[in-house]
Amino acid sequence: MARAEIAARTLRTDRWWLPPLTTFVGLLLISIYAAFRTFQGDYYWVDQYHYLTPMYSPCLTEECIPAASHFGQWFPALPGFLTPPLLIIPFLLGFRITCYYYRKAYYRAAWASPPACAVAEPHDKYTGETRFPLIAQNLHRYFFYAASLLLLINIYDAVLAFGTGLGLGNIILLVNVSLLAAYTLSCHSCRHIAGGRLKHFSKHPVRYWAWTQISKLNNRHMQLAWASLIFVCLTDLYVALVASGTISDLRFID
């Protein structure tokens, strides 16, 4: 038996193409900004107020400004156009790329698989995440572990910056790590590890409680993914503007 003969790719009359387009443009702009700042290799540290942009933290190579290397300089200077963040970006990028939310976002927006619900995808064949390379999405939890570690370092940086008084930069760094923490905690792998994998919640009251709380955050995972991503860029921009002397930090207490 055959399907109903309907030639149109979709009969949807709403602007179904708008959300994937918005996602695509949003991700593209953020990628361009992040790539630019990564390869700029400068303006990541405000010596006077100890502000370090999260994009360069931890700064682990010998070309880093020594004061910005809170955890020492483990590696020699990188050759050519390579910059210190390239050591941590694979983990941060890996975390976001394998994130269940971002997967939905770019499968739809960049790969049109599908572009929107009930809109036919343009591909002839589809195997989803059953084989290489997409089967590697299953590694998400390792990136979650790595990103959690980097988050702790960012929190350390933000706390350290309070040693010089209080300025707008401190508030921004604080909001940034809060958003990053909320995004990381709301991760589906985190939810699973905390308690989701249990069969009997009643036997593990503490993990059940943790699972319940994380589930609430997890409901907002998409919003947190965007909020934290945009805010990391804004934080970095603020640090860059202060570090380059373009603006001066708004100080409350010195």
């Binding site: 997967r103 499968y107 195997t127 989803g128 299953n138 989701g196």
Partner: peptide
């Protein structure tokens, strides 16, 4: 095969969180 693009959850008239509460936990 599921690439968690959530169209099932989007159309479910019972508003079951199919992707978040069933498919992703199974993938985990």
């Amino acid at each position: 095969y599921c690439n968690i693009t959530k169209c099932c959850s989007e159309v479910c008239p019972e508003h079951i969180h199919i992707t978040d509460n069933a498919l992703i936990p199974m993938k985990e």
